[in-house]
Design a protein around this nucleic acid. Structure first.
Lengths: 343, 343
DNA sequence: TAAAACTGCTTAATCGATTAAGCAATTTTT
DNA sequence: AAAAATTGCTTAATCGATTAAGCAGTTTTA
């Protein structure tokens, strides 16, 4: 019962008694083919339910019209939103995307790169795993001559296009907001220092404190994996201090949630005793109680820009010199967890 | 600077002064090639950093080793976990996956199917959009002669393999649990009746009530899109009733969260005044306060089974007769929102 | 020792679409 | 009216890997 044989250009050609070349050109609306022939070809193509064999044309044309995407995970709102917006633009331009997840693991990331290169993608858009410090594998992409665009988690050292938010400024903004709320001992549960974005957040935190003449206490600055569990641990660590902080800025929402749970378990009033701010504006920050203030990273915008950057690179592969680094300004969403005076 | 030219079989062949056929076979460890030649080929392949052109081999072999995946969205824990487990098994078997999102929209789903067929995937694993009722497009996949496996959201009418949980039994389990907790007026905020899984949940709810001699009040059975917003609306509707329910079973976690918020805004004690249960075991159900009881859908297992089913279909395409419908037993996770007597 | 089987390769066709080159017929230009 | 340009196609090569068929030379079997 299953009609296995797909219709090919040849089938159409034989039926109309013309060459496959003519059929191919007709479907591409080539000016050298008469309107009558084009019409006939299109009709037969529709009748036979012709679907071009993508592999064949990709092989011949030397491009697959596929874009590889590597993200640490898809079940975060940030990444799935980036992907969704990226996909929309790429689809419109005839590209499809292949999504792969690194699960924050360097080895899985390398596998993902191999997979994508193997699949002959025309380019790769990636956000690096937390673990990743070695950039050899990314060099492999560059040496393949296809565009590589990084977003959010990216390294400056790799000389590639990058889209992200201004982590330094965001961090700065958070600390100033907390100071305005009257906080004087502001702790920071930060990400890994070696990851550029987290390092920038740490710098923003330190500089904002300094500019406001607040002392920087080293016991208030912690390095974390930013999982919910580690957020709990680091919060417990902060509560164990002789002089507790009156505000905690956590560099990730999941860790902020863990921290919030510990605060609640210890019956500490949020924000009045200790104010709390996360980073990433994950949907659950607006769902928990109290709602958690956070930074919106403009995921849609990042997705769109990454896609556009890729398209530009594809169009003009020779203009490699001007590197494209787009840094967006993030937005602080003030919610209950840092709002001491509810209006 | 960019070394554009990729090394091909031909390059290796010329270097070793043998035919490309011999090289191809050597790399495939064909028994008709001498160990010496194989060794030499492998060495040169490594030296030249040979990466086989996937498009060429896929074209020739008539299979792409790509599996298409269609999900309503990736930013739900359920789907991302399914995908992750599916990917693991498929990768091990030489397959890569292309993920596409339908965003619960029928038209986007059709586009996704076209995209995947166009990319010459060897099979499709899908969970249907809420909107989808018309199955013509899925027929298109079947007529292409490649395996189609549905999970979670699937229609029985389409004669294809299916993996999911027992929605009827899960629903039954929830209601019995609530009754055991002493609830007597149990409401159900259900999904769309026309979607099979939600219909099954509704049937389970009704039958469990009946078996326990509890009256079925039509005003306690609501149909919802199961978004967080709609969960709020439906909960407000329930609170507006003359005789309020003493338990609400919501067919989705997001909607359950919305319902919980409304309950809290109305200062209604959960679970003592009104108990609450969700469905799906999204991570946030364990994060909010009170934590929300829910049903775990065994996402990892579903992902693994879907992948395995695909692999079996590929291995034995002729054994089309025995349809594979795997229905897993789900697990009720009792949390604070339905636990009246904390031990 | 002749026939059969195996070893280790080569040749050439193939997958399906694209495209450079070319050719005959028609139309436009000079 | 001859030259040039245009139209509308065809032929054949190509992308890179795979594979059926085949062919020497060697080894095993009867």
């Amino acid at each position: 019962m299953s009609k296995k044989r797909k219709t090919t250009l040849k089938d159409i050609a034989i039926l109309l008694d013309i060459s496959t070349a003519a059929v191919s050109k007709a479907l591409q609306d080539d000016s050298r083919i008469s309107a009558k022939t084009k019409e006939a070809v299109r009709k037969v193509a529709k009748d036979l339910n012709y679907q071009p064999n993508h592999l064949a044309s990709a092989l011949r044309k030397g491009k697959s019209n596929l874009v590889g995407v590597i993200v640490p995970r898809t079940n975060s709102n940030f990444f799935s939103s980036v992907i969704q917006n990226m996909e929309e633009i790429l689809n419109k331009n005839g590209y499809n995307i292949i999504i792969t997840q690194s699960n924050e693991s360097y080895s899985k990331e390398c596998e993902a790169i191999d997979t994508l290169l193997f699949t002959q993608v025309d380019g790769i858009i990636a956000s690096m795993a937390n673990e990743t410090t070695d950039l050899d594998y990314y060099e492999k992409i560059k040496s393949r001559g296809i565009p590589l665009i990084l977003f959010d988690r990216g390294e400056n050292d790799l000389n590639v296009d990058y889209i992200g938010i201004d982590d330094y400024a965001s961090s700065h903004m958070i600390v100033e907001h907390l100071i305005k709320e009257g906080c004087k001992r502001i702790a920071h549960i930060g990400g890994y220092k070696r990851t550029r974005i987290f390092n920038n957040r740490i710098r923003g935190y330190i500089d904002a404190l300094r500019e406001n003449n607040l002392p920087l206490a080293h016991e208030l600055l912690l390095e974390s994996s930013l999982t919910k569990e580690d957020g709990r641990l680091k919060m417990e660590q902060l509560l164990a201090l002789g002089k507790r902080p009156d505000a905690v800025y956590v560099a990730g929402d999941y860790a902020a949630l863990g921290a919030l749970q510990v605060l609640q378990e210890n019956k500490i009033a949020v924000p009045n005793e200790i104010a709390l701010i996360g980073f990433g504006n994950e949907p659950f920050t607006a769902m928990v109680s109290p709602t958690i203030s956070s930074i919106d990273q403009h995921s849609s915008e990042i997705g769109r820009l990454a896609a556009q950057t890729f398209l530009e690179r594809i169009k003009m592969p020779e203009v490699k010199q001007t590197l494209c680094k787009k840094i967006l300004e993030a937005k602080l969403i003030v919610r209950d967890s840092s709002n001491k005076k509810p209006s």
